[in-house]
């Protein structure tokens, strides 16, 4: 489908300023998110597997409140679940961000209709769709079995507070974005065909 050898001299590509800005912002946020993720994971790993975190910590599990004065008092299964849940969420965010960064790099280089660009777009669409359906399945399973929230950790002095909400029915935005990326990849494929035809027009 794509001719690999064209030997046609390409004009020097000039990247629009907006694309350059988006590329640098994407790069910055990817590395910033990666560093923060590593710090968060290390912190959670530390307190989940032996470290100490003082302060009143409240868990709402299956509708029952559990209050602890130190994270060390939390049962091991909950600590492990918290670590794995955070690891899963952060790694899925980082992977999607990584593919978007790769896509932006190719756009920055002017390779709009390259096969790699199209593959990156498709991968982002697949990953977002997977995240959406996994959240739906978890939401349905836990709503049916345990009620709407199975995991709600709140550090009452304001730090390290986050909630894992098992229901996902109110987040169709992820699927819409996934579909947009999928459609974009098909539009780019048509663009690649036009580009190939143009390059082979003497």
């Amino acid at each position: 489908m794509f001719v690999k050898k064209t030997n046609i001299k390409m004009e020097k590509h000039h990247t629009p300023r907006s694309i350059r800005l988006i590329y640098f912002i994407t790069n910055f946020f990817f590395w910033f998110t990666s560093i923060i993720s590593v710090i968060v994971l290390c912190l959670i790993g530390y307190i989940a597997f032996g470290g100490s975190l003082y302060g009143e910590i409240s868990f709402n599990i299956f509708g029952t409140d559990h209050v602890y004065q130190n994270f060390n008092e939390v049962p091991a299964s909950l600590k492990a679940g918290l670590f794995m849940g955070t690891l899963t969420v952060l790694s899925s965010v980082l992977i999607i961000f990584f593919y978007f960064k790769r896509f932006m790099k190719l756009v920055y280089e002017g390779r709009y209709f390259d096969l790699k660009t199209i593959k990156n777009l498709k991968m982002i669409a697949y990953l977002l769709t997977a995240v959406f359906f996994i959240k739906i399945i978890i939401g349905i399973a836990t709503s049916v079995l345990y009620g709407p929230e199975i995991f709600d950790t709140t550090h009452l002095d304001g730090s390290l507070a986050f909630t894992i909400d098992a229901t996902s029915f109110d987040r169709p935005g992820i699927l819409i974005i996934a579909l947009i990326f999928w459609v974009l990849s098909h539009i780019f494929m048509e663009g690649a065909k036009l580009k190939e035809a143009n390059e082979l027009t003497i």
């Binding site: 001719v3 190939e196 035809a197 082979l200 027009t201 003497i202």
Partner: peptide, 8 residues
């Protein structure tokens, strides 16, 4: 070589 798609 006959690989061209079009000729102007």
């Amino acid at each position: 070589k006959g690989k061209a798609k079009a000729v102007r």
